[in-house]
Computed example of a mutant assay.
Amino acid sequence: MSLVAGVFALGACSGDQSSDSTYPSTIGTGPTHPTGNADRQTIFGEDGITLFGGGKDNAGAGQGIGVNSFLWRASLDTISFMPLASADPFGGVIITDWYQDPKATGERFKLTVYILDRRLRADGVKVSVFRQKHDEKLGWIDTPTDASMGTKIENAILLRARQLRMSSTAIGETGN
């Protein structure tokens, strides 16, 4: 009984449905609407809103990711020998899983790479290195790392990022 009452209540909400109305309406269309009307005013301006840095002023900063695309790609290239645990291109964080070099048994490393800027800058990347040594009785134990190890990896990432940028500039100039 209540189901029937609900159907009648919804039917009463339909309002006036004259036969001369058309759908979809072309009133209020604009440049962001498929039918396009240049006179439409919106709160976001003529071109709408740009998400993820799609403007012309940040060329090379990466379209669709939140960090510099050269630093992001160079970071992934540089640490590609290590298994990835997590990669967040919007936050600019890459976390590797533990990696044990076959030549150095009894110790393993883990990296966290932070990309800090949308520009290709020397201070735009930071690497944290974690090291563990294996003890027969206690298992894996955290051990301090050489302070220069993170800096060496940062320098390798920056070198690779510069190479990527130069190769993309050379491709852009030749028109390929």
Results as ranks from 00 to 15, higher is better:
S2A: 11
S2W: 11
V4L: 14
A5P: 07
G6V: 14
A9Y: 14
A9N: 05
L10W: 14
A12Q: 02
C13Y: 01
G15D: 04
S18Q: 04
S19A: 14
S19T: 12
D20E: 12
G28L: 08
T32P: 12
P34D: 03
N37H: 11
D39Q: 06
Q41W: 11
F44G: 14
E46N: 14
T50E: 08
F52D: 09
G54S: 11
G55F: 04
D57P: 02
N58D: 14
N58I: 13
A59M: 14
G60T: 09
Q63C: 13
I65Y: 06
G66H: 06
S69I: 08
F70I: 11
S80C: 10
M82S: 06
M82F: 13
L84G: 00
L84P: 08
S86E: 07
A87K: 06
P89S: 13
V93T: 12
V93H: 06
T96G: 03
Q100M: 13
D101Y: 00
P102I: 13
K103S: 15
A104V: 07
L116P: 07
R118Q: 07
L120Q: 07
D123W: 03
G124I: 01
S128V: 11
S128P: 04
K133N: 15
D135L: 09
L138V: 14
G139P: 12
G139A: 11
W140K: 15
W140S: 05
A147V: 08
T151H: 10
K152L: 10
I153V: 15
I153A: 01
I153D: 09
E154I: 07
N155V: 01
N155D: 13
L158T: 03
L159F: 14
L159T: 12
R160W: 01
A161P: 04
R162T: 15
Q163W: 01
L164W: 02
S167Q: 05
I171N: 04
T174W: 06
N176K: 07
